[in-house]
Design a protein around this nucleic acid. Structure first.
Lengths: 111, 111
DNA sequence: GAGGGTGTTTGACGACCATCGAACGTCGAT
DNA sequence: ATCGACGTTCGATGGTCGTCAAACACCCTC
């Protein structure tokens, strides 16, 4: 049965800018978010490969948790896998222009 | 004689998004940047008080250095004090919309 | 129900970070 | 020359972070 990850997603009113910025500040997480922005949605392992992060599964799991707890992405259990999506509506409501800016930034300014 | 702080300000082409985000992710630095956005320009001590950071001078000096090395602000020696300004043009050129978003975010999403 | 794929959790380790106080250098004014 | 305001630098401390490997839990399929 499909299900939410209860308790792990902060509601919109509890999003905080410093936490969001800190979550986006790590190069691996930033690449994952930008890849997810292109893909629309993606299971963890698929995103791990698509973003070419060069890190292990457990480390990615940690990053995914940080992004989730910052309110940046949403995880939904679908069958055997967790499908990740960006929380575009909530981010745009709280921090207008921030996500668009991060997704649109030229790749030459990444590393 | 008035002077630049040579060597401490990265040129526009060397700005990096993870570094900028990391610099903005600290609550004290974020408040300082937002206060500086309101003031336009400000000497260190004045900004330290205007932003109500609750930290000492040496700690503020450290934060100012982090922001400067990330390319977020510019420091100019004017007489006995350092006058700080945001590098709006460079930030807007590299990360369109980012600074505006950070400055415009509602204060209720800060802490 | 056995097996393979998927992702999490735990413990550990090294690196980095925010903070402070004290000492220092510099500038303008007295 | 001395003084006070301004800001930096240094060393130390306590906390947080990114990474990994190993072990675990879950789900789907055969």
């Amino acid at each position: 049965m499909d299900a939410e990850i209860t308790g792990a997603h902060p509601p919109r009113a509890e999003l905080r800018l410093p936490k969001v910025l800190a979550a986006l500040a790590d190069p691996a997480r930033l690449r994952a978010v930008r890849a997810l922005g292109r893909l629309g949605e993606s299971p963890c392992t698929e995103l791990l490969h698509a973003a070419e992060l060069g890190i292990g599964r457990s480390t990615f799991s940690h990053h995914q948790k940080v992004l989730r707890e910052a309110g940046i992405l949403h995880a939904e259990i679908r069958g055997a896998q967790r499908v990740l999506t960006l929380r575009r509506d909530d981010l745009d409501a709280c921090f207008p222009g921030l996500l668009d800016s991060v997704l649109a930034t030229d790749g030459k300014y990444l590393d």
